[in-house]
Amino acid sequence: MSSETDALLIIEPSPAWRTVDLGEVWRYRELLYFFVWRDVKVRYKQTVLGISWAIIQPLFAMIVFAFFFGRVAKLPSDGIPYPLFTYAGLLPWTFFANGLGTGSQSVLSNANLVTKVYFPRLLVPISAILTGIVDFALALLMLAPLLIWKHTMPAAESLFFVPLSIGIAFLFVFGLSTWLSAMVVRYRDIRHVVPFVIQIWMFATPIVYPLSFIPQKWRWAVSLNPMVPVVEAFRSSIFGRPVEVGGLLYALVVSLVLIVTGSIYFRRLERLFADVM
């Protein structure tokens, strides 16, 4: 306590353009922990089924997709049992989609805090996305019985790409959320666009179909979507297939660019949050 006695806090107009004060974010890490803790607690408290929701959501999507796309439409799945194939694709996708949904709304949905107490505003989108990790981990556990059921075993050496691809998905959705969460405060109508975009985006990403299903000459265009290498790498590593590292690298670079530009934009707008909300 005594070390902080002489703490000097200066309040003055900040420059219009500035980057993230990482030291400050670090000092507030306990609050970040509490935000995530709150969201996880509340999320599973409010529902009758509690934690099982995290599993039910992708599981039901899998069943529906397996029926319509696998059985009825007979989409190929690179020789992997179709339900497993979609489930493995849905895991990183659900993490990304939920992160984008809650992350982009996060500043607005925490308006009661943002207008009443100071903390680095970036904690809000970060915690919103981190909360999704818990759901992801639970859904990932569900993958084990599914693999056993279909007698498939992942190769141990390629499992390294599971955390890596999810890490990149996190960075990507964080980059997008810094842009969107700040933008939504200013332009409320974006809020209604996001769910719609997520829906379309899912079908533009090889989740219910393999990337090989896309004709060779269009594959480059589809692969501009950073979620393509993320989903592909995740799925390949689960099923022990070679991972294309170049695509992941591309997704990483796009994510970093989004994070840097997005957090500058976020910092520029955050000065207005309390005045506008």
Binding site: D6, P13, Y118
Partner: peptide, 14 residues
């Protein structure tokens, strides 16, 4: 929670 347009405040202490 919001920033001043101009001026400066110094606060010494937690």
């Amino acid at each position: 929670i919001t920033e001043p347009t101009s001026g400066r405040i110094e606060l010494r202490g937690r």
